[in-house]
């Protein structure tokens, strides 16, 4: 009698081991394995793969690499950011003191101070947002 060397269940064994089958299918495969030498052999092979992969020990990320990455992303985020903050706040403070000066002299300063500052901050943020992806 010629021995079969393929089994239709074989393809399900990886999912079976990984616990990826539905409960019904899992039970069906488990029952089948108990009486199929081909599948038993295949399971041993798959376990051999797992044992082989298991011998790998994680290597450490080279010293300073994380910091290097952090620096390189903060370079094109923080630097233009800082430059903008400086130039923008200079411009803004000049403008605010100019406007405030006019309003103070015309007696309007107290009522409009808050709304003025909010507008300034809003445009500051949208400016950064736009700059961010460059």
């Amino acid at each position: 009698m010629k021995q079969k060397n393929e089994c239709s269940f074989e393809k399900k064994l990886n999912a079976y081991i990984a616990g990826e089958l539905s409960e019904m299918e899992h039970n069906k495969v488990r029952e089948h394995i108990s009486s199929c030498h081909l599948c038993q052999n295949e399971i041993r092979n798959l376990q051999q793969v797992d044992n082989f992969l298991f011998q790998y020990t994680e290597e450490d990320v080279p010293a300073g690499l994380n910091e290097k990455i952090l620096n390189s992303v903060s370079n094109y985020r923080t630097n233009p950011f800082m430059k903008n903050v400086v130039s923008f706040s200079i411009a803004a403070s000049v403008l605010i003191s100019f406007v405030a000066g006019i309003m103070l002299s015309s007696g309007l300063y107290a009522e409009t101070k808050d709304s003025n500052i909010t507008i300034g901050e809003d445009s500051l943020y949208s400016y950064f947002e736009g700059d961010y992806d460059v």
Partner: peptide, 30 residues
């Protein structure tokens, strides 16, 4: 970064290349 670095090491088998790709990956992600 550790997991990604080790993944890259396994397929590239070269530390410098793994470092470069790791860096590029995180920059793209950022």
């Amino acid at each position: 970064s550790g997991r990604l670095y080790n993944y890259l090491l396994k397929i590239l088998r070269n530390k410098e290349d793994a470092e470069d790709i790791l860096q590029e990956t995180f920059i793209a992600f950022h």
